[in-house]
């Protein structure tokens, strides 16, 4: 393998890992605190992507600066993820926390299906591409190879910022401590007067905002189309399970591992591209059934 292929595979892998991490971290946060595997998470990712593409196209057709797309996609995705997350947690999920896991899976899968139909209804079935922001950011040279600055700088930058911000939030702020305390022992938290319902609402909303932001940041680099949410949820699930359910920092490491694995497969063994993330997951789970960073009584968040 020559240096160019190696460099490209690493850059592609890191960019891809950044996108997956944004979704997986929200999923693992929700699981860590609420003990719900949220299949609907892919739906929030797709809605964020559609919104971002729609905003990007509107900005381009209005002849405005493509740089406007950046703040607009953040605000749009955060609002959409926030509102949807609040409504779904408050009016659906709150009633199934004490139900069986199978029912929780079915309910979140039903929400995912509804979100897919909402996308079809609002955005239609045609794919959207809005890459003017990627073009505006131009390219930079990495070891002599020109590469999109959006993918090599912005996406990993956002992912690192998310990880650092989330760590700071969870380990330093009062709200973060309330969330980690409730994740550790909901009964004890309630006994001391913590409003666990509110903690759950906030946690779910943070998770859905992160998923929508993941989709919004992914949109300028890809064709936004039906089915992208389903692809992402399966991949995020692989990341979350490989890391160990509820592991925020672990999700970052595993996203990089799976992102690089997939990217090297594309360059070296393209026929294994789709299989690679699950191959890595299978290998890890064979050796460590609770995930790379999980324990039997896994620490949540």
């Amino acid at each position: 393998m020559d240096l160019i292929i190696f460099t490209l595979a690493v850059l592609d892998g890191l960019a891809y890992a950044s996108q997956v991490f944004m979704v997986a971290v929200g999923m693992t946060l929700i699981f860590g605190v609420m003990r719900i595997l949220n299949i609907a998470h892919g739906g929030f990712y797709a809605i964020g992507a559609y919104l971002s593409a729609g905003i990007g196209l509107a900005i381009a057709s209005a002849g405005l600066s493509p740089w406007l797309h950046l703040p607009a996609l953040v605000i749009g995705a955060a609002m959409a993820g926030g509102v949807l997350g609040l409504v779904i947690e408050r009016f659906v999920l709150r009633y199934i926390y004490v139900k069986e896991e199978v029912l929780q899976l079915l309910v979140t899968f039903a929400i995912f299906m509804i979100l897919e139909d909402v996308q079809r209804l609002v955005f239609g079935v045609q794919p959207y591409a809005a890459s003017s922001l990627v073009d505006a950011m131009g390219t930079i040279n990495v070891l002599g190879i020109p590469y999109n600055a959006y993918q090599v700088l912005l996406l990993p930058g956002v992912a690192v910022l998310t990880l650092v911000g989330l760590r700071w939030f969870l380990h330093h702020t009062l709200l973060g401590h309330l969330i980690t305390a409730t994740a550790e022992d909901r009964e004890a938290a309630t006994a001391m007067g913590v409003n666990a319902n509110r903690v759950f609402l906030l946690t779910f909303t943070i998770g859905t905002v992160l998923a929508a932001l993941g989709g919004a940041f992914a949109a300028p680099t890809t064709a936004v189309q039906l089915g992208m949410g389903a692809d992402m949820i399966v991949l995020s699930f692989a990341v979350v399970v490989t890391a160990g359910l509820g592991q925020v920092e672990g999700a970052a490491v595993t996203a990089v591992l799976i992102g690089l694995g997939r990217s090297f497969a594309i360059y070296l063994m393209p026929e294994l591209d789709v299989l690679m993330p699950y191959f890595i997951m299978m290998l890890v789970l064979l050796v460590r059934p609770n995930g790379l960073f999980g324990t039997v009584q896994t620490r949540k968040i």
């Binding site: 401590h177 980690t180 305390a181 550790e184 022992d185 009964e187 004890a188 938290a189």
Partner: peptide
């Protein structure tokens, strides 16, 4: 009966 503390804090 079993102290319900947040063990990792």
């Amino acid at each position: 009966q079993i102290p319900q503390l947040f063990l990792e804090h």
